[in-house]
Amino acid sequence: MNSPVPTDPVIRLTEVNKHYGNFHALRDVSLEVAKGEKIIICGPSGSGKSTLIRCINRIERHDSGEILVDGHRLTGDTKDVAAIRREVGMVFQSFNLFPHMTILENCTIAPRKSRGLGKAEAEERAMHYLTKVRIPDQAGKYPGQLSGGQQQRVAIARALCMQPRVMLFDEPTSALDPEMVKEVLDTMVELAEEGMTMLCVTHEMGFARQVADRVIFMDRGEKIEEAAPGAFFTNPQSPRAREFLQQVIH
């Protein structure tokens, strides 16, 4: 594998294992992500991509191995978990906005309750990020009144309002109508260009080529390949990756 060796890892996974009952979902996965790096994770359905990134902010709990995020070691300690979650933003396939709150409230609740910001400051910050994702005019509406693409951009703004050091994306465009994919990807490209550290599960290969520093290919819970996007897309090393790429491209 010809991947660059990160110098200052924001995230370091060492031989992480995860089971669901008897099912071995992650097998000895190790990974280092340096500050500002963009990692794309791809692989067939059920290969453990979601599980991998969900272990990083403990939406799922790993069984063995070590996970370090921003200097905090992920153990059962709730203080560490809370500290890590404050530094790690997450965007879900199904948006998961809070339907009973306005867009503005969606963006201010966590900074206020978890970071202890005042109302005015939280709202100012929310408007800043809503402007960044180009929907400041929707601040007073409810999620149900927005299109899928708009909702996902709100979800990105909501995560950014915590001013995280790392952003995790789990197939952020898979639930969107085709005509809305671009507006979300554009937002993510901008974020990448600003130097955000990003781990993104996606099958949008154009996006991967454009922003990725490294591509990680997963299969059956294992990290099979890790390479620069150019090398991965033109010359994948493993037969499984070749097979996968053929399916995705066609």
Partner: peptide, 22 residues
């Protein structure tokens, strides 16, 4: 839905805050 709990967790809201506000 389970996604609501996950979003609240990811935003570092405590269990109490999650039930109370979300």
């Amino acid at each position: 839905g389970k996604g609501q709990y996950e979003a609240a967790d990811a935003l570092s809201l405590s269990t109490l805050q999650t039930y109370r506000h979300i």
